[in-house]
């Protein structure tokens, strides 16, 4: 574990001494909870419509596929007309697009960002690399199957998929959300131990709590 994460005594600027335990003070250790649909069907349908029509993507490009998202923001493809926007902070985002290959080092950051997103949240795997490793199938430091580490809603095959197929994938995601079947966040909470097991198998320098919001 890194030295800055060890519990220690710190002297403040006014001479006061206090204990610091970064893993306890800065992170939440509560495991994720399952949040089933709580309201009448008609209200849940309204919420699902709104969730489908307002998809906020976390602005986090993990691999080379992220370059295919740029044309979606600009006049040629303009994903904003489908209610798709990019948000810079995981707190406000609903959709995590894993864009292309995912190295183990990035996977750690991806898990932290994913866990900070609020329920319901969705994951789209972009490109062949997220399905079976793609052209990185024998690489020593990329993951092969994204589904082992995060619950994926939609895969978009291709290397790279064109922006049109991304849009098609988003439409498919919308259909799933509107049908009330995009419960990835609850699957993650339900099978939390299995996901953590898989994640820890590839991430060897695990220096964060098991769950950090």
């Amino acid at each position: 574990m890194k030295p800055e994460l060890q519990p220690r005594r710190v002297t403040g600027p006014d001479g006061q001494e206090f204990e610091v335990d970064p893993l306890r003070d800065y992170y939440c250790e509560a495991p994720p909870a399952v949040h089933p649909p709580a309201y009448l069907k008609i209200i849940e349908d309204l919420f699902n419509w709104a969730r489908a029509e307002s998809i906020w993507i976390l602005g986090f490009g993990t691999g080379c596929g992220a370059i295919e998202m740029r044309p979606l923001m600009t006049p040629r493809f303009d994903a904003y007309r489908y209610g798709i926007q990019w948000r810079p902070t995981p707190r406000q985002a609903n959709l995590f697009v894993i864009s292309g290959y995912l190295s183990v080092k990035t996977l750690k950051r991806v898990i932290r960002s994913y866990e900070q997103m609020q329920n319901p949240k969705y994951v789209v795997g972009l490109g062949s690399c997220t399905i079976n490793g793609g052209m990185y199938w024998d690489s020593y430091n990329t993951i092969k199957r994204l589904d082992d580490y995060l619950p994926v809603d939609v895969y978009i095959a291709g290397c790279m998929p064109r922006p049109e197929s991304l849009l098609h994938g988003f439409m498919e995601l919308k259909r799933i959300i509107r049908a009330g079947q995009a419960e990835g966040a609850n699957d993650y909470a339900r099978n939390f131990a299995w996901y953590k097991d898989n994640q820890k198998r590839v991430i060897h320098d695990w220096d964060m709590p098991d769950y950090n919001w």
Binding site: C28, L46, W49, S54, P75, Y80, G83, P120
Partner: peptide, 29 residues
């Protein structure tokens, strides 16, 4: 503003969808 950038821009009801979605999120800290 989107038309100035030669985009179509958001649908006119987009703000309602955003608002309902954010009120309808299931978890918050």
């Amino acid at each position: 503003a989107a038309r100035v950038g030669r985009r179509h821009g958001i649908p006119i009801w987009q703000n309602y969808a955003d608002l309902v979605k954010n009120y309808g999120l299931r978890s918050s800290i």
